[in-house]
Amino acid sequence: MARRHVSTTINGEAVDFLCEPHQTLLDALRDELQLTGTKEGCGTGDCGACSVVFDGRLCCSCLILAPEAEGAEVETVEGIATGGELHPLQRHFLEEAALQCGICTPGFLVAAKALLDSNPDPSETEVRFALAGNLCRCTGYDKIIRAVLDSAAELRGEA
């Protein structure tokens, strides 16, 4: 099967890759571009481990075909920290022990950043519903929700 050529932008950088027409964006990120920070928990859009921001929208990269990334802007967990500095969400996740095994963490960070980018002052309930598409089997969510709320406060300059 002929491989497709795709030109896209990932974390602000122009990127080219070859993929199979039926390959998912998740597989292309992981297997063609070695961006393995984006995880696969289900492949069916049910766990959020593969969360990316695709043209400004939070998406499951396992539900997007790689060729659809042609001309798109994709943001992954690898792009959250900037210039050697962790994002406040990453820092709060570490300081507040919001990860145990950590497999869900990239997806939560991407989804939480998407939330805070659009809603800088969410309530606990809003955070819980915004992150309801991300499964974590280890933490019971308590410390994740607190880390997101504390990051939001810091980003608003309140902490």
Partner: peptide, 11 residues
Amino acid sequence: KVRGRANYGAD
């Protein structure tokens, strides 16, 4: 683990 660099089984 928060940077997406940790290597899990499938990585």
